[in-house]
Structures are given as C-alpha cells and as structure tokens.
Design a protein around this nucleic acid. Sequence first.
DNA 1: CGTCTATTTGAGCCCCGTCAAAGGCGGTGG
DNA 2: CCACCGCCTTTGACGGGGCTCAAATAGACG
Lengths: 266, 266
Amino acid sequence: MYGSLINRLSSFAELSREDTEALQTLLRGRCRVVDAHQQLTNEGDSFGTVRFLVDGWICRHKYLEDGRCQILSICLPGDLVDLEGAFANKADHCLRTITNSVVVDIAHSQVEAILRSSPRLAQALRCSIGYQSAISREWLLSLGQRTARERCAHLICELFWRLRDIGLTSNAAMDFPLTQEEVGGAIGVSTVHANRVMQDLRLAGLIEQCGKKLKVLDLPLLERAALFNPDFLHGEQIVRSSRPSAERDRPSNLWWLLSGAVASEC
Amino acid sequence: MYGSLINRLSSFAELSREDTEALQTLLRGRCRVVDAHQQLTNEGDSFGTVRFLVDGWICRHKYLEDGRCQILSICLPGDLVDLEGAFANKADHCLRTITNSVVVDIAHSQVEAILRSSPRLAQALRCSIGYQSAISREWLLSLGQRTARERCAHLICELFWRLRDIGLTSNAAMDFPLTQEEVGGAIGVSTVHANRVMQDLRLAGLIEQCGKKLKVLDLPLLERAALFNPDFLHGEQIVRSSRPSAERDRPSNLWWLLSGAVASEC
DNA sequence: CGTCTATTTGAGCCCCGTCAAAGGCGGTGG
DNA sequence: CCACCGCCTTTGACGGGGCTCAAATAGACG
C-alpha cells in the first residue's frame, strides 16, 4: 500500500527498518480516498496539515482572474504535497486530483514527532523539497524557451523518469491519466494544440498511447526532442551514491543553519 | 550601506536593535563589489556559502543545450540569493549580475551563529524563502498563460512593488537596468518582441522610460494590463500585521518540524 | 570622433489560438 | 443488449501573436 511512498523517500536517504515501520504506523488507518477531479485545496486556504500523496496523481494549479489556468506541477505517489506550508501560511494556488487518489493528512505535531526520531527521514524530506524546486525551475525553462512540441516531450520524459524512480513503470510503459486539456494546462498551450503535438509525437514514432496508458517507443529520441537532461531529476540521488554516508548525513548547507536557529528557541 | 537589506528583512519579521546590529557586524568588511554582467555562479557549482545581495540587481538563469536561456528570477537588494543551498548540493542554474552589485558571501557556520542568536532573523529567512517561491509560481503562471504584453506589464509591476517594499522607489519612479534582451529572457520572448511590447506600454501611456529609469504613469491601468494581483507579493507581510507577535513567532508549520528533527541530532 | 552595444523598424513567415463541428468511447439507464 | 449522453479526441479553416533576418538609428564610452 505504501510502497511508492517508501520507494520515493528511500531514493533520497537510506531509510532504516525503523524508519519505514514508523512511517507505516503513522500512515496506517489515516488514508483518505479521493475521487478524480476533486478540488483538494483552494487559493487562500491555510496550511493546517502536511499531506502525503500515497497513491494517484494530483496537480497544483493557479488561476488568472479571467479564468486562464496554469498547472504548476504534477504530484506523483510518494510526493509531499504541501511543502509550501513550511514557508507560507496561506496557499496562493489550488490542488486538484487527476486520478482517484489516496492522501494522508498529518498534523504537524505528528510529523514533528516522527522526524525527531529519524534524521534520515528529515534528510529525505529536505531532498524532496530540493527535488521539487528543481522541477519547477525546469518548468520555467520549458515554458519560457521550449516550443510546444519540446515541452510536451519534456513533460512525458519527466513523468516517465519520475515514475520509473518509484517503480511505477514496466519497461517502457506507464500510466498517463492526463487529458489533453490537462497536458495543455501544464505546458501552456491550448487543448487543441496539445492534441496536435501529442499526435505529432505519436506519428514520429516516439510514443504510443492506448487509453490511459503511454508507451515510450524511443526514449533517446524522445529525450532529444525534449532537450531533456536526465540529470536534473537526480541531483539528490547522485549526491547520495557518490558520497560516504557519514558525510552525507552532515551536509554543509543552509538547512542545518536555519534549523539550528529555530531549535535554539525550543 | 545595508539599508535595503535591513529593510527587506524587516518586512518579514520585527527585527530588534540587536538583530540589525548583529547583521551589520556580520556584513561589515565582507562586502564584495562585482561589476555588471559578471557570471557569479555556473551550473554544477556547489553551494559553499550563503550569499546576500546587499546592493544591485542579479538574475538567476538556466540554459538549454542549444543556447536558449531563460531568466528564472531577478534578485533585488536584500534578497538571499543562494536559498537553494539549503535543499541541494549543486546548482542547476547560473547567477549573473545585471548591475554593479555588492554581495556578501558568508560561511555557513557564521550564518548559523547569527541565526542561533535570533529567532526573528530565522523567521525573516523563512519568509524570504516563501516569498521567492511565490514569485516563482507567479512566473510559471505568467509564462504559461499571460500574453507577452501582460507578462511584460506584470514584470514591471512585480519589480515596482518589490522595490517599493524596500524603499527604492521615489513616487512612481524606479531604477530599471534591464536591457530589452534581459526583459525578453525573463518573459520568454525574443529581444525584438520585448522591444515592441515595451514600446506598446509606453505608447499606451502606462510607463515612461528614460535611460535606466522607469516611471509608472498609471499604476492601476498597468496592473490591469498585467492581470496583476498585488496580494501575491505580500502574503507574508499580511500575516505579519494581522497577527499578534507571540503567535507569529510560533508558526505551526513544517519549518519547525523539520528543524526540530535535524536539531535532535546536534 | 569612432566603436560597441542597445534600441528601433520593416517584411515575411510560421507557430499556435480560436471557433466550429465531427467522430470516438465509456457509462448509465431502460 | 441497445440507445443515449457526456466527455474527450480529432480535424479543418482562419487569424493573429510572436519569431527571424536584416538593416538603420541612437546612446554610451573612451
């Protein structure tokens, strides 16, 4: 049940048996099932809890006053959804399920308890924040500089790698529950144009779609069409595997400093 | 000398006399002057220090392999530039000065010391992170949904409000050192089109430019042309003024929790 | 006063948005 | 099992926003 969540966090830090068990205890019985296409959060809501996405796809999006809507990011199983809660009090954007989803809302005090008990989980969450902001920067680059075709290819590459990292691909096949309207909202083009671009990628033999499934027929070519740099998703993991454990647990970065400052008040 | 920095941080938390003095002591004699258009950081650099922008304008930007380049954000005096250092080990983007600038590189240990001494400074930095990611989300919305004219107007509004918040406007006038190439890089259009759009705003009587100065002739109209929502920049400040101090200093959010977890290791 | 950079202007083209309508496909009810 | 309905996908035509190439003008600086 929590496999993808554990997988995701494990890719950021080597979780011990106690860590995963503590996580499972925390989540057990708290899961909430939400139907597809449900609004989870609205602009102006305050962050009361931390939210884990255990299963399903969710998107964060933001409206212009005239109704235009941009998807800011797509959350996959294992993602921590309300990271902004750490740095702001009110949401400036919305949250909506794409598929049927399983989410867990956890009171801050409980996350606090479990994080206190495991520096490795704290490390995993820290990496998760860095990971998601790296993706945001890549989306800025996409929306500003890539063509619609490149953006679409890039989105598919990103989702493919992210799903692969959490074990949700089988060979070259993956779930792809996004409607073309959602693809358009993510890559900043109209629904009609999203359709034409997806068609183009199919006709070029790069991908194949059947229902809500997508198969990557030629990953190298797709990545070339996307100007995709696979490293951008794996900055954290790379660090993980290239450094001895002791050093990795004591990163010389701001996180520690700011943490220390706050901790001094306790 | 450090006025804008103190101003900026003061807008996020009520700094005491000791806080500002400690900041000044930390910065005194460490300032480094950098010419305009200098590369400060390259992709792949590791984050060794925390960096404050004391004076000047800096931009963060990211390249596509074929040379296309998108500006991710613009840093103004008082901004903390290397926030990513808290969440990643290597930079996935670059840093370049727009104007002559004054920056301070501070070793992590020293920031740690000063933050330990002041929870209010830690609060200010936390808000700074939230502030900057709110701006990033707005840029995503801009690049994805606004037209070039709206994006350009929005950029000007954003910079105007941000400069005003740190006391760097006089009435409706502000510095505007961006070349049209940089404007284009920020709003995701070609230099030529950035020129036409700026001209359009001038002809519409919304702004006036003279050298590196820009005057907002009709702020309400400019904001309408930008679909600008002034709240988006002031989420943190609003919280600040609408809550009693005691409660504000003890935000019930993730920041504390993650901090606590790391602190438990010390 | 010459040089370099930034701004401006024009022409032509193509990417992509809009509008409109025609399939496809799954689900629901009879 | 079929008919119907709503949602999603697909297709076409047309117009406009924005890109490219190219060249002229204006400023900044030594």
